[in-house]
Each structure stands twice: as structure tokens, then as C-alpha cells.
């Protein structure tokens, strides 16, 4: 059964340390000088939306630290992904990485995140928000912070009308969810060679045999790592050029920087390695104090890893769609991004 969309109010009573609207980022913006931005942990953000039957690119919420709490004026279906956290509905613990059916007026709390930076909260339907270059993702430098404040009421347009079952109040779905393992004390991040790897003697052994610690000045622009570095030899001045997400830069000091999705797009520092695409979501969760080491892989292996990561998400998406269709839960009909809207609409 399908219902028409209705507007639902979601009152954010506690907004954590920093919570924003978020999505997978801008497309076709970097040639205009605007970094793609978007969820630092793309895997968790995509999975949250998939778990509630949305397009992966739908607007969700990114929650960093502290306590986040909301109540909705009507029944809503949501999912919480990202690093392990305590999620409760009216005080009762519920699972992450699962669709949650929340009754109208119930208080949902997400707190005590551990092992990383970010949680993602997606709702079945479309969250109303301003967009910049087609995306809800923050671009704070250009005056698009997208930050949520305590007391703020969000509007959700949803076709969800509650879930009823003869015996159960929560759907006990068995979904094949690819949950990342955030538990190791030292994360191993896969890297491929960069343009200056061969000009930097010893960097291969150093990166794969040392532990690095994420520094306090890290953010969505880049992770700053403490640990041993070596500088390239015999390089002249590098003319400023575009830099990919995940580039390992060694500036003049003894610091290693891994560029994030909101990086400054051009730089002239040597790039001694580049994180494999399949490892970027893990990097997006690294918080200050996090220890990590690196493993060199080939470009072919890196592509295979990413293909497998995407295959698991597509598999989950297929299962969610089949299941939701069978039990009458709404599924987003388009997998395309929502139409772009001027930020002035906010």
C-alpha cells in the first residue's frame, strides 16, 4: 500500500557537539573551485539511507560527539549508522545499522559514540533543507554551515505510515548489512603509490612499519598525523596542481597530512601515497588520538576492494527494496539526487 507524502516535524532537542545536514557531496563542483565535501564516512551515510529505503544520495544528518535527541510529530522510520553509539527510544536500547520504526512523540537519543567521529541518521523520506550547488552538504568557508541548533524543528516529507504486524511491533528484519569494524586499536589503512613515492626513499617501509597518531588539529579538510616522516629528495618547486581526496602530503615540516573531502583543491606539496578509495570512509571516522598504520596495495587491488564495498551496498539495497515492497514500506522511486534548490530557500 502506498500513502501520499505528508510533512512531519522533527524537533531536535539536543544537537550534540556539532551536527549538520549532510549527503554524499557535490557533483561537478570541483572544476568551479568548490570541493565536493559531503559525508566523511560515505559508506555509513549511504548505508543509513539505504536502510530506510531512500536514495543513497538523500539528505541525512551527520552527528559528531555529545548527545543528540529528537522527537517526531508523527511515526517515522529511521536508521543510525557510523561508529558504535548508544541509541535509545524512550530509554530502551535499540540497534544501529537497522531500520527503526519510531512512534510519534517517542524520544530518540544517540549518545556515547566511541572509536570514531561520526554517526549518520537517515529518515524514510526527504528532509527539507537548503542546497548549494545541488547538495545539502556543508561548505562552511563559503557561508553554508548547515549546522543544527538545539530546539530546531526539521521538516520531513515522508510516505511512511507506521509499521504494523500481527505479532511484532518492531520489524525483525535480517538484512545483509556491511558494518565496518571500528574495534581494532590500530587501524590499517590501504594506500597506493603517489606521484612522489619513488622520489622519497624509505617512505614505503616507514608508512607500513610505523604507527601514526591523528592530531587534534584534524578536520574535514585533512587529518594531521604525528609519526615519522621522510622528505622527498631532489625535487624542485612543485607547480600548484589539483590534489585528490586521500592524498598523503608532506609539507615542509615533519607532519603527514591526509587530505579529506573538503580539502583545498590545489597544492604544491609532494604526495608520497594516496589512500585507496575503499579506505576513505574509515579515514573519515578517525578522531584525534586514533592510531593507524598503512598497507601498500596496487591500483588493481584498490579497485577490487572498492568494487566489493559497492557490491555489498548494492546487495543490501536490493534486499531492502524487495523486503519493503513485500511489507508495504515506502521505497524511494528514484535513485537520482533530489533536484537542486537555491540556498536562498532556507
Amino acid at each position: 500500500m502506498t500513502f501520499p507524502e505528508r510533512a512531519i516535524g522533527i524537533k531536535v532537542s539536543e544537537a550534540g557537539w556539532l551536527s549538520t545536514f549532510q549527503d554524499l557531496g557535490r557533483e561537478n563542483s570541483e572544476f568551479m573551485g568548490v570541493p565536493c565535501g559531503g559525508a566523511a564516512d560515505q559508506h555509513s551515510a549511504a548505508a543509513a539511507n539505504i536502510l530506510v529505503g531512500n536514495s543513497r544520495k538523500a539528505t541525512c544528518l551527520e552527528i559528531m560527539g555529545g548527545r543528540f535527541a529528537f522527537t517526531a510529530t508523527h511515526d517515522v522510520m529511521c536508521a543510525v549508522t557510523g561508529v558504535p553509539a548508544e541509541v535509545t527510544v524512550n530509554g530502551d536500547p535499540v540497534a544501529m545499522w537497522e531500520p527503526l520504526c519510531i512512534p510519534a512523540g517517542a524520544r530518540v537519543v544517540i549518545a556515547k559514540a566511541s572509536g570514531g567521529m561520526r554517526n549518520y541518521l537517515a529518515f524514510s523520506g526527504e528532509l527539507e533543507t537548503a542546497r548549494f550547488m545541488g547538495s545539502a552538504a556543508p561548505e562552511s568557508r563559503m557561508g553554508f554551515p548547515q549546522q543544527l541548533a538545539p530546539g530546531q524543528i526539521l521538516t520531513l516529507h515522508s510516505r511512511y505510515r507506521g509499521f504494523t504486524h500481527p505479532f511484532l511491533t518492531q520489524p525483525l528484519f535480517q538484512l545483509p548489512v556491511p558494518v565496518p569494524d571500528f574495534s581494532p586499536d590500530v587501524w590499517t589503512i590501504d594506500v597506493v603509490e603517489g606521484p612522489e613515492t619513488d622520489r622519497t626513499p624509505g617512505i614505503r617501509k616507514l608508512l607500513s612499519s610505523s604507527n601514526y597518531t591523528v592530531g587534534a588539529k584534524s578536520n574535514h579538510v585533512g587529518l594531521r598525523l604525528d609519526g615519522p616522516v621522510v622528505h622527498p629528495e631532489g625535487l624542485g618547486e612543485i607547480v600548484s596542481h589539483g590534489v585528490p581526496i586521500g592524498a598523503f602530503e608532506i609539507p615542509h615540516g615533519d607532519e603527514l597530512i591526509i587530505l579529506g573531502r573538503s580539502r583545498t583543491l590545489t597544492a604544491g606539496y609532494p604526495i608520497v601515497a594516496v589512500a585507496a578509495k575503499a579506505s576513505l570512509s574509515m579515514l573519515g571516522q578517525a578522531s584525534p588520538g586514533r592510531k593507524m598504520t598503512f598497507r601498500w596495495i596496487s591500483n588493481v587491488q584498490a579497485v577490487e576492494q572498492y568494487r566489493e564495498q559497492q557490491r555489498l551496498l548494492a546487495h543490501l539495497e536490493g534486499r531492502v527494496h524487495a523486503l519493503f515492497a513485500a511489507v508495504g514500506l515506502p521505497v524511494s522511486t528514484s535513485s537520482a539526487a533530489a533536484p537542486s534548490q537555491s540556498p536562498a530557500a532556507a
Binding site: N28, E30, F31, V239, H241, G242, L265, T266, V303, Y306
Partner: peptide, 22 residues
């Protein structure tokens, strides 16, 4: 091709590695 970053004397072309190889 997903996006392009212009440098002073170069272009960085970002692409979907599941669609094409270098």
C-alpha cells in the same frame, strides 16, 4: 569522468574507478 580540478599547468581528472581504468 566525475570532476576536474584545474592546476596552474595541469588538470586533475577524477573518475569512477569502477567504470574505467587509468
Amino acid at each position: 569522468v566525475l570532476d576536474i580540478v584545474a592546476g596552474v599547468e595541469s588538470l586533475l581528472v577524477e573518475f569512477d574507478c569502477l567504470a574505467v581504468t587509468h
